[in-house]
Design a protein around this nucleic acid. Structure first.
Length: 689
RNA sequence: GGCAAGGUAGCUCAGCUGGUUAGAGCACAUCACUCAUAAUGAUGGGGUCGGUGGUUCAACUCCACUCCUUGCUACCA
């Protein structure tokens, strides 16, 4: 396992020089809680490194280039620069509110980034790693631009589903090239794209195969290596790094109308942001961190979707350009909410700004921390669990310790006792520091939280056993009561240090209460004796499930507004897109026996994603049909309904049984599907003519 | 379709290189306590570890097959 150097690294605490990054948020949209998982994960690590005394810099930037940003700006009638400037402000606001303490948050649309992008490109070119090749791509004749896959829509070449993107089909999950789409349309203008030649520039990744295989041995976890070996096994292909004008990005030097693909300059944004930080910070040298022989540590935190960019293209480019490679790339899974993908219609697509309207950001920081591990597994935000976890761990266990001790200490003027009541218990708390460190270092925050909470349990049990409230009632034992409560506060103080990377703002309030300078890791070993405390004010309120519900409701509302318009657009688009089939004769039509059918029963099919099993009455007997309408209709809403079916279609054996016909429905698919039904009075079995 | 990760108590998760009655937190129940933001403490009920078949003296842990979930599948970002 490549993680094994951890203990060595811990041994050198205080001497390490570390540069860490989170993936750059795309400047074309707001930050949502899925993004936040990564920034919180990275921020905790960064704060931890600083807390234990390492030299650590956490940089990030907005990812500002590419076709989507260009088009989005056009749509809003503003320049791309104006769009990304707006995003920059919004993003920083969200990050600030969630306590993400970047040392620098820059932009890929910056002098520094242009410089390093050109430098890396030039070095790739000089070393013979750039190839030129003419490729054939779809081109929008109206907009006069080449179309990325995502901006071409049409019918799936495999299953014929309408309204599919140019790279893969949502319905049958086939993958293909946009050229294969039937009836392709430009999603930008609606025009029919034409094929056009264009010369593109490629990085010859094959040149780096040996280097990458070597790097993967130390740079990623076993889990990630498995995934990456897929690409290595099928053989690395040339990576297309150019795009034709019009494109919002940097022009390739000496190549008019050719621009760098956004994914080339995005990771370079890490360098640019750090360079920008160096220019503002006396004594901080860019080369110390990025030179080939740098002894500093460099870590990238990313989501699992962009592993290939960070673990193949990026190390290759760095090596080719004579820079150092990352020490490690840490990938995390995706955020699901209540077990499924974030969904706008369910209200679980929650923007950071929406969350902030209803809830304390440190709740989420803690919940993330409580469940995060170093693994690449997806992370489920279960909203009920979230409420319980935060209330129980943070308020009922941890904060409660201070809360139950504070008043009794206050009685004696707020001055803590001169002695430790239970030295061995204190020792036990102190001795866990190494273990907590290891967990943080390994990004096993879940294990750290568990350990910290088990200590909190011990503190509560200790207080219960000593029952200081009883001791306080008797003059003779009042001193002992103070001693116990002071002990409780000291235990609480240690827990606060352990939790500080996760809950920076809460712990700031703790520091105020303790009347102490900012807590550091070394404070663990020196308890407070005869120390004057400040008045205790409640440190954290419980989460109310109602707040969570309100947040979800408001997310649903926001999404409904958007989907109303897109739904309309989609409907219009799909009627436009689907062209009329070639003319047929009446005899052809007459072969099709359409009958009115009454839905007798409708049931979910176990194991089927899209199918409902329908029993239909067509006058003379029953027919069983498996219909792909689960996404749009609930079975209970269908029973008793009249609809139209193709009654003489050859039965087809499906995985779940025999389907003896088809019911008729229209629409692009998913939720947008409408079953045909006759007006009142019609009877099952009547032929449709 | 190919590949990856996951499928362990009601919920969220631990279970390393196979070994006594499968663990924790929350939730639930009972009792205790009343200092604390109705918090805390003690005790207890509850799972045979997605399924099938193997390997083994012994499997949640290894192998094969299978089902389910999520994700990736490079000129999308």
């Amino acid at each position: 396992m490549p993680e094994q150097t951890t203990q060595d690294l811990l041994a050198s605490n205080g001497n390490r020089r570390i540069l860490i990054t989170s993936a750059l948020p795309y400047a074309n949209g707001p930050i949502h809680i899925g993004h936040m998982l990564e920034y919180v994960q990275t921020d905790i690590w960064s704060r931890f490194q600083k807390l234990v005394g390492n030299e650590c810099y956490y940089v990030c930037a907005d990812d500002t280039h590419g076709t989507p940003i260009m088009l989005s700006a056009q749509k809003q009638n503003i320049t791309s620069e104006e769009l990304i400037a707006k995003s920059h402000i919004d993003h920083q606001k969200d990050f600030g509110a969630f306590g993400i303490a970047f040392d620098n948050f820059h932009s890929t649309h910056s002098e520094e980034n242009k410089f390093y992008t050109e430098t890396i490109y030039n070095r790739l070119l000089e070393n013979g790693h750039i190839a030129r090749r003419t490729i054939n791509q779809l081109f929008d004749p109206e907009k006069q631009m080449f179309l990325p896959d995502r901006f071409v829509k049409g019918e799936c070449p495999k299953c014929g589903s309408a309204d599919q993107y140019g790279d893969n089909c949502d319905v049958c999950s086939a993958t293909y090239s946009p050229v294969e789409l039937k009836n392709p349309k430009s999603a930008v203008s609606g025009a029919t794209p034409v094929l056009k030649d264009s010369e593109h520039f490629f990085v010859k990744l094959q040149d780096f195969e040996a280097m990458l295989k070597q790097w993967l041995k130390t740079g990623v976890s076993q889990q990630m290596a498995n995934k990456l070996n897929e690409w290595l096994d099928v053989g690395l292909q040339e990576w297309d790094i150019s795009r034709d004008a019009p494109y919002f990005g940097y022009q390739i030097p000496n190549e008019p109308n050719k621009f760098f693909y956004v994914w080339l300059d995005a990771p370079i944004g890490y360098m640019a942001s750090f360079k920008n930080l160096c220019d503002k910070t006396a004594g901080l040298e860019f080369d110390d961190f990025w030179n080939k022989d740098s002894k500093a540590e460099l870590y990238h935190f990313i989501g699992k979707d962009i592993i290939n960019f960070h673990c193949l293209f990026w190390p290759a480019c760095l090596t080719a350009a004579n820079y150092r490679t990352p020490s490690k790339v840490f990938a995390h899974g995706f955020l699901t909410v209540n077990g499924t993908k974030m969904s706008k219609s369910k209200g679980t697509f929650i923007k950071a700004a929406t969350y902030l309207e209803y809830l304390n950001p440190e709740y989420l920081r803690y919940y993330f921390a409580a469940k995060l591990s170093s693994k690449i597994d997806d992370f489920d935000l279960n909203l009920e669990d979230f409420v319980q976890r935060v209330n129980s761990d943070l308020v009922n266990k941890y904060v409660n310790i201070a809360s139950r001790c504070a008043k009794l200490v206050q009685k004696s003027g707020g001055v803590m006792h001169a002695e430790i009541d239970h030295p061995s218990l204190l020792k036990e708390f102190q001795n866990e520091a190494k273990q907590v460190e290891t967990h943080y270092e390994n990004r096993d925050y879940g294990k750290a939280s568990k350990l910290i909470m088990s200590l909190a349990d011990k503190a509560n049990t200790y207080i219960d056993e000593k029952a200081p409230w009883k001791l306080a009632k008797d003059e003779a034992t009042a001193d002992e009561a103070l001693k116990v409560c002071s002990m409780g506060i000291n235990l609480f103080r240690i827990l606060s240090i352990y939790l500080k990377p996760v809950l920076p703002s809460l712990v700031t309030n703790v520091e105020n209460f303790l009347n102490a300078s900012p807590l550091t890791w070394s404070d663990i070993q020196s308890p407070l004796l005869s120390h004057q405390l400040n008045k205790f004010i409640p440190l954290m309120k419980r989460v109310d499930i109602k707040q969570v519900e309100a947040m979800v409701a408001s997310s649903v509302e926001a999404a409904a507004q958007i989907s109303k318009t897109t739904k309309k657009n989609n409907a219009e688009k799909s009627t436009k897109i689907e062209s009329i089939k070639p003319e047929i004769q009446f005899e052809d039509f007459d072969k099709i026996d359409l009958r009115l059918a009454k839905i007798i029963s409708a049931e979910h099919v176990e194991g089927a994603d899209k199918l409902l099993q329908l029993k239909l009455d067509i006058g003379e007997g029953e027919k069983q049909v498996f219909a792909g309408i689960k996404s749009a209709y609930a079975p209970e809403d269908l029973v008793g309904k009249l609809t139209v079916m193709v009654a003489n279609l050859a039965p087809r054996k499906m995985r779940f049984g025999l389907s003896e016909g088809m019911v008729l429905a229209a629409g692009p698919g998913k939720k947008d599907l409408w079953l045909l039904s006759p007006d009142d009075g019609a009877q099952p079995g009547m032929r449709v003519k």
